[in-house]
Simulated scan of single mutants.
Amino acid sequence: MAENRAPKSGLAAEAQKKLLSKYDNQLASEVMEWVRRTTGGDFSASGEIDNVHEVLKDGVVLCKLMNVIKPGAIPEKKISSSKMAFKCMENIGFFLQEAKDMGVLAEETFQTVDLWEKQNILAVVICLQAVARKASKYGIEGIGPKESEGNRRNFSEEVLKAGQNVIGLQYGSNKGASQSGMNFGNTRHM
């Protein structure tokens, strides 16, 4: 667990410092409040890194959240309340798999150790924000911007062929203009 790790040094310390500088307590508080409200949980919705880690590290709250969004997504018998590391990380893994199945992009998810070992809590917050966006598709009130639904257009063959005859402005049409008579910078004096 994170308490048993040696302090980072060198490049690892610089990378960790950069990650911590990007962490947004306000965003984390908003996400944790959404998780608390959605699950009906009785925990602090503070956005402090230590609180986010403490509330979510065993994965039980994450599994409950996923079961509220998608009932039965993670069977209750699979969710372990044990505090053993591999069981907690298994719970987190169940949540991550269901998040990917919901359509959360791989870039918006986190690795299990990011949460379990408190390596990158920002990634956890970003993942939960993405899950909250996707939750509106399942009838759960989400947070953040509404997901776009696409605007597919179907053109007839006639319209597509007519479009091939149009010369776009990116081809450099300048109506016969030339550079004759233009003086670009200083001229050479002899």
Rank of each mutant, 00 (worst) to 15 (best):
L65Q: 04
N25F: 13
V124W: 01
S80F: 07
E108G: 01
K22D: 13
I79S: 10
N154K: 13
V55M: 12
E48G: 08
N154A: 11
D50A: 14
C88T: 05
E14S: 09
K175G: 12
V125I: 15
L56I: 01
N151L: 07
E48M: 11
M84T: 04
M1T: 14
E54Y: 11
D114L: 03
Q111N: 13
R133Y: 02
A177G: 13
V68E: 05
F94P: 00
V61K: 01
E3C: 03
K64P: 00
G150H: 08
I167A: 13
S180I: 11
D42L: 05
L62K: 00
G144Y: 06
D24L: 09
N120E: 03
Q170V: 07
S173A: 12
Q179G: 15
F86Q: 12
D58W: 04
S82W: 02
L20A: 09
F110W: 03
Q97I: 13
C127D: 04
I126K: 08
G150Q: 08
R153W: 06
Y171V: 12
F184G: 07
A99I: 08
K77M: 14
L11D: 04
K83I: 02
D58F: 04
G172V: 08
A15R: 10
A12D: 14
N174S: 11
V124N: 00
K17E: 12
G40M: 06
M190W: 14
N174G: 06
V31P: 03
Q129C: 06
K134T: 06
I126S: 05
G185K: 11
Q16D: 10
T109C: 05
E54Q: 13
N91W: 02
D24T: 10
N154M: 11
E76P: 08
Y23H: 12
